[in-house]
Design a protein around this nucleic acid. Sequence first.
DNA 1: CTAGTTGCAAATCATTTGCACTTGC
DNA 2: GCAAGTGCAAATGATTTGCAACTAG
Lengths: 151, 151
Amino acid sequence: MITEHGRAGVEGKDLRKAGLKVTLPRLKILEILEGNATRHFSAEDIYRTLLESNEDIGLATVYRVLTQFEAAGLVKRHYFEEGTAVFELHQGPHHDHIVCLDCGWVEEFVEPEIEKRQTVVAGRLGFTIRHHSLILYGHCQRANCPHRRRS
Amino acid sequence: MITEHGRAGVEGKDLRKAGLKVTLPRLKILEILEGNATRHFSAEDIYRTLLESNEDIGLATVYRVLTQFEAAGLVKRHYFEEGTAVFELHQGPHHDHIVCLDCGWVEEFVEPEIEKRQTVVAGRLGFTIRHHSLILYGHCQRANCPHRRRS
DNA sequence: CTAGTTGCAAATCATTTGCACTTGC
DNA sequence: GCAAGTGCAAATGATTTGCAACTAG
């Protein structure tokens, strides 16, 4: 169950393990989340992709499934600055994100020193960290990125 | 114009400087934002406080004013995980936040090494950073914090 | 069989907008 | 006086929920 991307794929058995029935909508949504180029989707993104594949799955189901996946730990939900939640398959180690303000492209990264310092800071302030959200916003250099100006 | 908190207060002249008329709603909202204990508010928080002070100011105005303040650089808008935006007077140097999952208490902190590493990471990935959002979520140790259990 | 799922429409929540009525300068 | 500002109600956009019909196990 190692996919061609070198990532462990998620499938039926994982759903069952999470106490969820293996249904077509769930499998299709998982399939999309496994994504090729992109690994970060809004509910709307997924819904649109399903429509394009001529799947008859409602937007409400997409939301319900994603929320259940999140509860089961299969998916992570992020709140980037565009106001709509973004979902990502929760596999591999923890990482943070950098988002391109021009084209929406998302890169993942890990910086151990940053992680470490977060714990130190929290301790200094008398907090016990449960999780965190670090998102960098900037401009990427991808060829197809439209360098739109924004203030 | 140094307040008793040792922070430079924002007042009428700052509004004018931003090209905004000095009106009662704007002054009242500024006053709330200057806050004592708390410095982070949702639009609803501010609206509620206004009602308690028997001010006849609509929620729509609160949103409009906060958005204008943000555009003028007087206020910063944050997206914490509760789905509603949080506003903070934009004074003093940049800082990040740590939020208590139990009581919603917000602390600010600065960690130069983290800031520095962010720039390095961005460079490594070919991004130019415009801004970032680092929020730690955990449990504080304040006496009045209700240590509610969550998963 | 039957509890868990789904699609659809209606409901909710946060935030924005249209409009006629004020008010600062 | 008049453009800018405001209150209220209605509109919007994202997400959730009620419910009757439908399937996985």
